[in-house]
Amino acid sequence: MLANADIRAAAKGASVRIWEIADHLRISEPSITRKLRHELPQAEKDRIFSIIEEIAKEKAVD
């Protein structure tokens, strides 16, 4: 099973791309891809979940 499957599923369910999360974090897409290879601490996951929600809301407004 992939590490951080919950983050990947949340992003996919919200139609948010990994590169969009990276952009929000002000890091490169390869950096976030490497970061997601290993299970993240819960605090960091919570931050990413809130970013996913924020991006999804922005897309809903557009």
Rank of each mutant, 00 (worst) to 15 (best):
16 V>A: 01
22 A>T: 12
42 Q>E: 13
59 K>D: 04
12 K>T: 12
60 A>W: 08
33 T>F: 09
50 S>G: 07
7 I>W: 04
7 I>C: 05
31 S>C: 11
30 P>H: 09
36 L>M: 11
7 I>S: 05
60 A>S: 11
57 K>G: 05
23 D>C: 06
39 E>K: 10
4 N>D: 01
14 A>D: 14
9 A>Y: 11
21 I>K: 04
21 I>G: 02
16 V>N: 02
42 Q>C: 02
58 E>T: 08
9 A>N: 13
51 I>S: 03
48 I>T: 05
55 I>R: 01
52 I>K: 02
56 A>K: 08
46 D>Y: 03
30 P>R: 09
58 E>D: 09
29 E>K: 14
33 T>C: 14
45 K>C: 08
5 A>R: 09
36 L>E: 10
62 D>E: 15
1 M>I: 10
18 I>Y: 05
5 A>N: 06
62 D>R: 12
4 N>T: 01
51 I>R: 03
27 I>Y: 03
11 A>D: 00
15 S>P: 00
17 R>V: 07
8 R>S: 02
56 A>I: 00
38 H>M: 12
43 A>M: 04
31 S>K: 13
26 R>G: 08
48 I>W: 01
14 A>K: 05
28 S>H: 06
48 I>V: 07
6 D>N: 12
2 L>Y: 12
35 K>R: 13
12 K>L: 15
19 W>M: 11
17 R>P: 00
8 R>N: 01
55 I>K: 03
43 A>Q: 07
58 E>R: 13
28 S>G: 15
4 N>V: 01
53 E>V: 00
16 V>T: 02
12 K>Y: 11
60 A>R: 10
45 K>I: 11
27 I>F: 02
39 E>M: 08
55 I>G: 04
1 M>C: 10
13 G>Q: 02
42 Q>P: 08
47 R>G: 04
48 I>M: 14
48 I>C: 08
22 A>F: 00
15 S>C: 10
56 A>F: 09
40 L>E: 09
34 R>S: 13
46 D>A: 06
53 E>G: 12
18 I>R: 11
5 A>F: 02
10 A>R: 09
62 D>W: 14
37 R>F: 05
12 K>G: 07
49 F>T: 10
55 I>H: 03
54 E>N: 07
55 I>L: 05
52 I>L: 02
24 H>T: 13
1 M>P: 05
58 E>V: 06
59 K>P: 09
20 E>H: 03
55 I>T: 03
19 W>T: 10
34 R>D: 12
22 A>P: 02
48 I>N: 07
47 R>S: 07
25 L>W: 06
62 D>L: 14
33 T>P: 07
30 P>A: 10
17 R>Q: 14
43 A>H: 02
38 H>F: 08
10 A>M: 04
45 K>V: 11
46 D>N: 12
60 A>E: 14
52 I>G: 04
11 A>Y: 06
42 Q>M: 10
49 F>N: 05
6 D>I: 01
23 D>M: 04
20 E>T: 13
2 L>P: 15
26 R>Q: 15
31 S>N: 10
49 F>H: 12
55 I>C: 01
36 L>D: 06
38 H>V: 04
50 S>N: 14
9 A>K: 13
1 M>Q: 12
36 L>G: 06
